[in-house]
């Protein structure tokens, strides 16, 4: 029997009353399940997941990610999404009317986009789209990154953690499922937001993090107000 936030290693048997092992586990020949990661156990009402401490992002259909343009082709952009594989953005999947061969006018190498994974195939080739609400080219701001498995912790239950950081630091934050985070605001506020994100990353496997974060942000807020006076 394992409990939530318990540390497990690859090969450790994981099971908890009334739950079905799901992500981060594999089935043994005798019907038991083992962890395939070094990480922590997450027991929910129905399922048991193992969340690794680190690791790369694997594209899944429907995920909204932040990517960096690394190459421009005649009809596609090649985008690095912090994964083992690059992804592609076709001109037909953008909200603009792009003429083939004229892609650089819209997105150049080094630009960041907030895009949605449209499809992923068996050999992990993927395509993204910019045709949805909120998807766009990132203008200005700062990019920071954390380990992709810790993204749910940054977002928090129903976005509570990221909203708290946004409100306390008065910054705009966009969190990509792939571990890249875009932050825009006054430089000193951005620095506070980044330090808060680092703290979440470091302590993602502990309990009571939201309360500690609240305290931390209030302290930092006081410092900034104190400095400007």
């Amino acid at each position: 029997m394992v409990k939530t936030r318990e540390i497990v290693f690859p090969g450790d048997i994981v099971q908890a009353e009334g739950t079905k092992p799901r992500n981060g586990t594999y089935r043994n020949s005798d019907g038991t399940y083992s962890s395939c990661y070094f990480g922590t156990v997450q027991v929910s009402e129905q399922f048991l997941d193992v969340v690794p401490f680190s690791g790369i992002y694997m594209p899944r259909r429907g995920d909204k990610v932040i990517g960096k343009i690394i190459d421009v082709g005649p009809s596609m952009w090649v985008i690095d999404i912090n994964s083992a594989y690059n992804t592609l953005l076709h001109i037909n999947d953008t909200p603009w009317r792009v003429n083939p061969g004229d892609l650089k006018r819209f997105l150049g190498v080094g630009d960041y986009v907030y895009a949605k994974i449209m499809s992923v195939n068996e050999i992990r080739e993927s395509w993204v789209t910019l045709k949805d609400v909120g998807l766009r080219k990132m203008e200005g701001g700062h990019i920071t990154s954390i380990a992709a498995p810790k993204i749910p912790r940054i977002i928090g239950k129903g976005g509570s953690m990221v909203n708290m950081i946004k409100d306390a630091t008065s910054t705009r934050i966009v969190v990509g499922q792939n571990g890249l985070i875009w932050i825009d605001g006054a430089p000193e506020n951005v620095m506070v937001a980044i330090s808060a994100i680092r703290m979440v990353e470091e302590e993602a496997h502990t309990t009571g993090l939201t309360d500690r974060m609240q305290k931390y942000l209030e302290e930092k807020k006081g410092e900034i107000v104190g400095n400007s006076e």
Partner: peptide, 11 residues
């Protein structure tokens, strides 16, 4: 490998 978060059957 385990520290890198790579899935493994066992150590």
């Amino acid at each position: 490998l385990a520290a890198a978060g790579i899935p493994m059957k066992d150590m």
